[in-house]
Design a protein around this nucleic acid. Structure first.
Length: 153
DNA sequence: GCCAACGTTGGC
DNA sequence: GCCAACGTTGGC
């Protein structure tokens, strides 16, 4: 059974175009520093799962592409890099605190901006649209995925 | 830049 | 374990 996820990225850091331009259209999803988001990767993600590639903290936030989970979990190397903004002095090599998966871009889509998503009654329960939600990785119901695919068709 | 909402920290 | 203070996220 395929599962679906929504993953936020700041396009200034990694946009859907950046991901498509990368070797194999694959990028390591570095920088997750929230335990709930980490646990979704660790406990829920499987290779091949569908990903909605979401642009956040930008002029037009919204879904910008489709991707897939392309690897199992691995330690996020940026936690050990003192020069990285994602450095975590408390993380130990033998017991990494932060994890990542590889994400492979499948295609760029037209931008499904937030107001358009909010206007769909069928998406009212999409986690990303719920008030106050800040999680950078959230599961997506198959029904929601279908609605979004239809909007992109 | 503002601010609501949420997560984390640390004193007790 | 409680909870106030503080930090972060992210849309606007």
């Amino acid at each position: 059974m395929p599962q679906y996820w929504l993953m936020k990225s700041e396009p200034d850091e990694v946009s859907i175009d950046d991901a498509l331009a990368a070797p194999d259209a694959t990028v390591a999803w570095t920088g997750v520093r929230n335990y709930q988001a980490r646990n979704f990767m660790r406990d829920g993600m499987k290779v091949g799962d569908g990903v909605l590639f979401y642009h956040s903290s930008c002029p037009e936030p919204g879904i910008a592409g489709i991707a897939r989970v392309a690897s199992g979990i691995k330690p996020d190397p940026t936690q050990f890099d003192a020069k990285s903004p994602y450095y975590d002095a408390g993380a130990k090599k033998e017991d990494p605190r932060w994890l990542l998966v590889d994400v492979q871009a499948v295609r760029k889509t037209r931008l499904l901006a937030l107001p358009e998503l909010r206007a769909k009654p069928e998406l009212a329960d999409l986690i990303i649209l719920r008030k106050g939600n800040r999680l950078s990785i959230t599961p997506v119901e198959p029904a929601h995925w279908k609605v979004i695919e239809k909007m992109l068709a």
